[in-house]
Computed example of a mutant assay.
Amino acid sequence: MIALTLPAQDGGSFTPPSVSSHLTPFFSIGGFEVTKQMILVALSVVLIAWFFVAAARKRQLVPGKLQFMGEMGYSFVRNSVAKDVIGAKDYRKFVPLLFTLFFFILVNNLFGAIPVLQLPSFSHVSGAYLLAVIVYITWIGVGLKANGLRYFKLAVVPSGVPWYILPLVVPIEIISNFVVRPMTHSLRLFATMLSGHLIVLIAGSGIEFLLAQESIWLKGTSLLVLVGSIAMYMLEALIMVLQAYVFVLLTAIYIEGAVHADSH
């Protein structure tokens, strides 16, 4: 956290809350600093791997609870995202990517709703940028493989547009598809996770501040803030799940557009 100290009327100082783009590292290995977010990302990989290995270890015709949950999660990504968006003919090869992205983002988001951990990994923008770059390279590569260099023309020249409008439309399409798309893809995830995390933190700080006051009325007001913070906490948990779905859904849409660029 970064604090800005301002002079107060009573001769003391006032330190308003603020947020830093970097957390204080837990420890360093040589010149490499290890932060809480790095540890949570590594933990998410371990948890996801453990869960699905355990779910698939003892496969049965009538699945147990763990196997049922694993199969339900896989089927959701496979059928409701990959197959429905990309199409029954081409979706299979992209299921591993979409499956990995969904559960990786989901678990890292849900860390923000777990007491003690209380930090969504993608409230740090670098992680969101990295995932967006991976998706960006993937769908461009898919478009080139499916359509050759002609893909760039298909991506920026909409079919059926009169030739005299193309000088206006083509620059817009270039900016929209190759600049704005990856930026919004990453910032949507980052901004949502950061803002929700800050709202919950501010509500918690407000409760602490009100309880520290001498007035009984202000102490009582802390109960209202508590009720509101619980509601925001539940809403944030829902948004954590939705953002994982939205990120993967957009990835599938971008891949579908690259695979079938000649038919759009």
Score class of each variant (00 low, 15 high):
Ile140Lys: 01
Pro182Met: 03
His124Asp: 09
Ala8Arg: 06
Gly11Ile: 08
Ser229His: 05
Ser205Trp: 10
Arg181Ser: 11
Thr138Asn: 05
Ile140Met: 06
Val200Tyr: 10
Pro182Leu: 07
Phe122Leu: 06
Tyr91Asn: 00
Leu149Ala: 05
Leu130Ser: 08
Phe52Gln: 06
Val95Thr: 02
Ala252Thr: 04
Met1Asn: 15
Leu194Pro: 04
Val45His: 00
Lys93Cys: 00
Ala49Thr: 11
Phe52Tyr: 14
Pro162Lys: 10
Lys145Arg: 13
Tyr74Asp: 01
Ile140Gly: 02
Val248Tyr: 06
Ser159Leu: 13
Ser121Glu: 07
Glu71Tyr: 00
Tyr129Ser: 08
His124Ser: 08
Gly112Asn: 00
Ile114Trp: 11
Phe152Val: 01
Thr24Met: 10
Tyr151Trp: 15
Met183Val: 15
His124Leu: 14
Ile114Met: 14
Gln9Lys: 13
Val179Arg: 07
Met69Ile: 15
Phe52Asp: 03
Met240Thr: 13
Arg181Asp: 04
Ser28Leu: 02
Leu23Trp: 09
Ala146Arg: 00
Leu23Phe: 09
Val135Trp: 00
Glu208Asn: 15
Val180Asp: 06
Thr35Ser: 14
Gln118Val: 01
His197Trp: 12
Phe27Met: 07
Leu23Glu: 15
Leu97Lys: 01
Leu6Trp: 00
Leu47Thr: 05
Gln60Tyr: 04
Pro171Trp: 12
Gln9Ile: 09
Val116Asn: 04
Phe152Cys: 01
Tyr233Gly: 11
Glu208Trp: 08
Asn177Ala: 09
Met193Phe: 07
Ala54Phe: 07
Ile29Tyr: 06
Leu23Ile: 03
Ser121Cys: 09
Val169Gln: 03
Ile2Pro: 07
Val45Phe: 14
Leu218Lys: 13
Leu66Ile: 12
Thr184Gly: 09
Tyr91His: 11
Pro63Trp: 10
Ile134Lys: 01
Leu218Phe: 15
Ala252Pro: 04
Leu201Asn: 12
Leu235Lys: 11
Ala237Cys: 14
Leu235Ile: 12
His124Met: 09
